[in-house]
Design a protein around this nucleic acid. Structure first.
Lengths: 192, 192, 192, 192
DNA sequence: TATGAATGAGTCTTCATTCAT
DNA sequence: TATGAATGAAGACTCATTCAT
């Protein structure tokens, strides 16, 4: 088995454990058991539990970024608002389908390195949105004074709302979430 | 010493521990030591660590609500936008000055009761914002179709941004945060 | 309230606690709560938990002895076997109606003094049986070589069976227990 | 070291602890120390203290059963009373040499499973005695109406006496105990 | 006598991490 | 690479006992 595969398997196992046992139930023991390997083996791929969690966060953000990149490809069609709405939908669905990992994202991870990794990944995500905003402005769809800050704001608005909802409101109403988020963006950017 | 005082002292001690040791470093042992009481004494006021954490969340949210209520009092002056900006500033400052407790807010707390308490307190906070939005609409300052959803959205946008920034960007730029948040609201509500 | 009354109340409370929480659930806290007094008050009547338990055992044995004394009074009627059967029945019923205290009797109570008290009370009980055996022998109902040992043996046979049954066989069949115990005595003494 | 060996070692250590510190002094800490392993190691073999205690009871009863089986083998010699006396002697000696474990047997062990195990093991022991009684009856040594009940009664008579004596009369007189128990059986079964 | 807040030693239990094989 | 038994520090929680009021 390729080294990378085993690593991915372990991360998959970790997600599975969180799904079944909650964030507090994430132990190396369970990850190993779920992946069908010995406990020691986990340490062959991750130096510590903290690094495993960091990797989990990183991978999650990467996947999300990938989805957004894909969704933003439609921007070429010229339908900015339609594309934006689709991106929102994609993000909501991603979070909902990764709801258990989402809980980890909100977790402290003392490890400075992990924090940095997470910070950079977030920044990349925001950069994507910023670019989209600039393009919308260039195309005359709307006006933005400070695309960077606006992108940050919108990203965290969306994620903040999603995180809270996922963590504290068990029965999430997807449609309502999507509509609300889309509305926020339309309003914030001044869609007439 | 009045019974309530000792309880408050313990919560203060818990906040202090989090400030110095991080959320993961919050142990009953340390809370007791910091409060200058025996370990057993903590259990005289909180049935479990989970309940202590829940109480911490509750108190924090209560204080925040209090601040917002105070800030919203200016609404009577008739200057809606000015009041809104002040509220934003108050919230930002509250979060920044309670930054260590903020980290706990994002924490899972298996305890169902605590979750419910937190959920209700959040709802109350949002209710406050909703009322303010309605008043602005009544006064003709702007138009809102769905004050409830908008209030939720704006609240989580603000808090989401603040939480992430506080947790992952050690060197927070208060001015920038305030301005960005104020801008978000103005835009979202369509301030010309 | 007379000193003795309060003491009895505390012992009653202790029995009640055992009934509801099991021997392991017997704590000074609960005894005090059940008796409606403060924890400190318990220590005004018992120097330690161990002494309270010792007193509980002692009182239980005393009550049992009282019952047996009463039952043995019928010996004067001249019906030795009938009286013996009645005594057995009385003991079985006493144990069954005090089943929760019975569990404590089987408990170690490091306190040497308590052990001694228990030992003496037991001895007194056995003395009662021994006297009954002697009387039966005198009356020519049966023959016994060693009344003292026989009394001990029969007492522990009865109590041993009862204790085990009560502790490990939740659904006790009173009739079967009574019959079996009576049979044992008749056989052991050679009733034709 | 084989897995089973370590388990046995831990049980041995537990017995040793009880011997030196009493039942109340049985702690995982001490068991580990006595076995020369880390505390965590104990939990590799027993899920909880309760299970360890249950295992202790189970093993003790198993050993006892083994001894009785061995002693009953002499039944083939045709000397029923002699064999019975030998069995009594074996049981007395077993209890005396395991006197500290005996104290645990009388202990509550909230664990339902442990109780069941203990109950079954006891039943097996009684079954052994019952078979012996039937054989004696078949051989015409004596008559028994209800071998099952009689076996139960005799078993608990023996064990009840032994438990009490061991727990409350530090200076046990082996000979006297043996003789008394043997006498009980002879009488109960009607040895002329 | 009575109170009940405070104590703190003592227990069980978990789990990240190591290391000999 | 892989294993999994062993480790032991750490933490939550209990409860008999004390003592100032």
């Amino acid at each position: 088995m390729a080294r990378g595969d085993r690593r991915e398997e372990l991360l998959d196992a970790a997600e599975g454990v969180i799904e079944e046992e909650g964030v507090a139930g994430l132990t190396i023991d369970r990850v190993a058991a779920r992946a069908g390997v010995a406990k020691g083996t986990v340490y062959l791929y991750f130096a510590s539990k903290e690094q495993l969690v960091g990797a989990l966060k990183g991978r999650c953000l990467e996947q999300m970024t990938g989805m957004v990149v894909a969704a933003l490809a439609d921007l070429e069609s010229g339908d900015w608002w339609g594309t934006a709405d689709a991106v929102v939908e994609a993000v909501v669905d991603f979070d909902l389908s990764h709801r258990w990992v989402i809980a980890v994202m909100a977790t402290e991870s003392g490890d400075e390195e992990s924090k940095a990794v997470y910070g950079e990944a977030t920044q990349q995500m925001i950069g994507l949105l910023e670019a989209a905003l600039r393009q919308g402005a260039v195309e005359g769809v709307f006006e933005v004074d400070d695309p960077e800050t606006t992108a940050r704001l919108l990203y965290f608005a969306l994620e903040g709302t999603l995180h809270h909802t996922i963590l504290y409101e068990p029965e999430v109403d997807r449609e309502r979430l999507v509509t609300a988020a889309q509305t926020l963006i339309h309003r914030a950017l001044g869609d007439a």
